[in-house]
Design a protein around this nucleic acid. Structure first.
Lengths: 189, 189
DNA sequence: TTCAAACTAGTACCTGATTATAATATAAAG
DNA sequence: CTTTATATTATAATCAGGTACTAGTTTGAA
């Protein structure tokens, strides 16, 4: 820090990145006041760091989350369906992120794993809507944020409207989850 | 529709609302081309319908979802914790929305219900992080979008690091779910 | 002291708007 | 057919939050 109470360029730019990550809604003017430098300096910093302007940043946040909310909350299937034999088996992949995990341990919260399994189980049943009746599940070992979950579902038995689906989830070939789902078909396709 | 292929004012304004709900990222210019009217007409429409300008709309989307993504994906607990006796019992409430349900039937996807149960089970255990080991769950009857889920958790047994938690979920006093969770404490508080 | 890096200042221009005022088109009614 | 009301379009000035560029000023270290 120099005598006028300002930070060095490198220091300022580092803090700028952090600041904008936390609050992407700050104008150059806000930032110039915050760092006690001119607007032009902020602009130069953004240019050097390849940080887009306020409106673009807001738009990015909007688009990213617009997508995200619709694909996560409203997903018909959690994860990405990579293989499907309707009524027989299916495979889905879910890339876990730090948001899905406990911040202290980076261990992915169980319900994300469950969600992938359940939605895959539903996807393999060839019916307009199936509803989970009963399931028996076991988490075999903890999953860390960043792990790529590969879920494999197999229909093991069909008895009337009841479909028994077995789902196993792996991380690098190591099984981390298994679950038995009993799905009831509401209405056939 | 008049002879020049344009819609009536009322009709256009109705469609304008729908269009912007679907895609809030359209400029006045985009809209004027879409409806084959002048930009000024679009502005008058927005004024009459009290629709904010593009940038404000984008900002709204950004802020709303910024919140949402962090509170839904990153939630430590799904639903709202309304009562808690650490190590003994707890109650949480989850207001279901149409996004949590299958669009065709409005039946809430099972994993949302499971998530509420699991995260409540974890909350009642007095430990820094607990991890679900095994659970046996049953969906007793379908939940419709808009239903208010009241989850009640009770610790039924403690054996070393294993905690047995029973969770029941109700809609209007009627039970819709039950689940038995075995939680393993990783590290005590 | 000097010299380059860092910073500041100023100008012209851009987009997607605003507001206000005026002109014109269209449809319905007298 | 003309008047009137409503709807639409045009025109100009202004704004925020920038970009892009040029030019000048500080400042700290050699």
């Amino acid at each position: 820090m120099n005598k006028s109470g300002r930070l060095s360029k490198a220091n300022r730019q580092k803090k700028l990145l952090v600041l904008l990550k936390e609050d992407p809604f700050m104008t150059d003017e806000d930032l110039s006041k915050h760092f006690k430098v001119s607007i032009q300096t902020i602009r130069l910093d953004r240019l050097e760091l390849a940080i887009p302007e306020l409106r673009q940043r807001i738009k990015n946040v909007a688009e990213k989350n617009y997508e995200k909310v619709r694909s996560i909350i409203g997903a018909e299937i959690v994860g990405e369906l990579v293989d499907l034999n309707l009524g027989i088996s299916g495979i889905s992949i879910l890339e876990t992120t730090s948001e899905m995990a406990f911040s202290k341990t980076s261990i992915v919260r169980g319900h994300h794993i469950f969600s992938q399994a359940e939605s895959l189980a539903m996807a393999v049943i060839d019916a307009e809507v199936a509803l989970t009746g009963v399931s028996n599940i076991k988490y075999l070992s903890p999953v860390s944020a960043g792990d790529k979950l590969v879920a494999k579902a197999e229909v093991t038995r069909v008895r009337g409207n009841n479909h028994f689906v077995h789902v196993k989830i792996y991380v690098d070939q190591v099984q981390v989850f298994r679950g038995k789902f009993i799905l009831v078909i509401i209405k056939s396709r």
